[in-house]
Design a protein around this nucleic acid. Structure first.
Lengths: 238, 238
DNA sequence: CAAACTTTCTTGTATATACAATGGTGATTT
DNA sequence: AAATCACCATTGTATATACAAGAAAGTTTG
């Protein structure tokens, strides 16, 4: 336990307080390295370290020859959140409907067993759900579930709630991984999604964890013409 | 134009190369600050800066009194950062090459004029660059540039640096927006990317801002079979 | 033998200095 | 009036130095 905070942390807090209090708004210039030297009674290198860290944290934007500025507001990006497709559709003012295509218990493949930390051929839950937006198919959700973390999965009524809602209720989402690719879907997916001839599919593979335990492996197929993924963000420089 | 790479970047690359080559695996100890001083012929503060940055990037874990260690595997979140395709390819151990397909000045469309806050039919810069990974086309980059924020765009040699590098040097990136969709590409794109019959294309539309001024509107086409976008993240609750 | 101390190696904090590179301003020159 | 130049403020890179603090291993001492 150190009785006195580091000096560079004092400088950081000084700048952060100014931003929080509204003294410096987004886009405003904050004190330069040399100004902080006299304001906070530290060396330039110490002041510099504080500003650099705030820069790498995305709080400030620094430009050589000009100065350091408060970065613009951060926007949430829908790519980063696990959004519930039901509320996503309803928020856009449309009607959501779900159709259960399949619900079963399958023996785990080697890959799934490794992911879920179970033995190969142990049972895993499997579901295929087709989501509609105003009677038009918008997402085909194929999902494999870890029976350890979500033992009652098969008993859920997914016309009422989505798998997402159930899973987040039994196992809080602590981590997720997305892989996005463009494919030409196989026939079954093509038919279920009512795709046109030659329409591409946006496939998002999503793995979710809860406290270092993998909960679910999902493949979400979207019609390329009818679905877009958007994200808006403020970068953090390294 | 700097003729020689910064020293701290050389040290960073030295460590990164050792990790990429497998010399140091996850959990292994990398050279200490003082060892890097003699290995790379730099001062301790410079070696330190390299290790610190690798630490803040999550590549290394540093422990006082013990040393610096290669962090456990972490997936890059390329969706969240504006990554330079050149370094992205090189970091994966491949060779990057760029071919300038077109470089011109065009009259702005109504949409571009609105985005760039200029008058319609005012000139904007336009470039089409094809990026190769080991002689295989991996990204077709079509880009419209705001001439106000990047007036010297046409004079750049994009065989040396990428548009990304130039743009971030003249106008620090403060915000970005991505839209991702799956399409079946038109013939020209199809041919340039050497696509197979019926191969889908992952199209990322990216708009970047610098201090509330739009700098660039880019369309990045990727072969669906050869390119994946990945992201891994921890949801923040605050 | 075991506890206490010392040494050594490591990263962490703090400072002083020097020069480079960029952007803006204002004076000077053309 | 326009172009050029000099100057200044700002961030960026690089080095040298000093001391602090934690971890580990060896050495001394009881």
């Amino acid at each position: 336990m150190q009785k006195s905070e580091s000096r560079y942390l004092r400088v950081k807090r000084y700048v952060l307080d100014g931003i929080k209090s509204g003294e410096w708004m987004a886009g405003d210039q904050v004190p330069s390295e040399n100004e902080l030297v006299t304001l906070c009674q530290v060396s330039r290198m110490t002041a510099r370290r504080a500003l650099e860290e705030l820069n790498s944290e995305g709080i400030l934007t620094r430009v050589r020859g000009k100065g350091s500025f408060v970065a613009e507001e951060k926007h949430q990006s829908s790519l980063l959140e696990i959004k519930n497709i039901k509320t996503e559709i309803q928020n856009a003012g449309h009607n959501h409907k779900a159709h259960l295509v399949e619900m079963s218990e399958l023996p785990a493949t080697v890959e799934l067993a490794e992911l879920f930390e179970i033995n190969p051929k142990d049972p895993v839950f499997h579901s295929i759900i087709l989501h509609y937006e105003d009677d038009q198919p918008i997402q085909l959700e194929e999902r494999y579930i870890n029976p350890v973390t979500a033992p009652n999965y098969l008993e859920q009524d997914f016309k009422q709630s989505t798998p997402n809602e159930y899973l987040t209720s039994v196992a809080p989402l602590t981590e997720a991984e997305h892989i996005i690719e463009a494919i030409v879907a196989e026939k079954q997916v093509h038919n279920l999604l009512h795709l046109d001839q030659d329409e591409a599919v946006l496939l998002m593979t999503r793995i979710t964890w809860s406290f270092n335990k993998a909960v679910s492996y999902a493949r979400l197929y979207h019609p390329g013409k009818r679905y877009r993924l958007g994200s808006r963000f403020t970068p953090v420089s390294s």
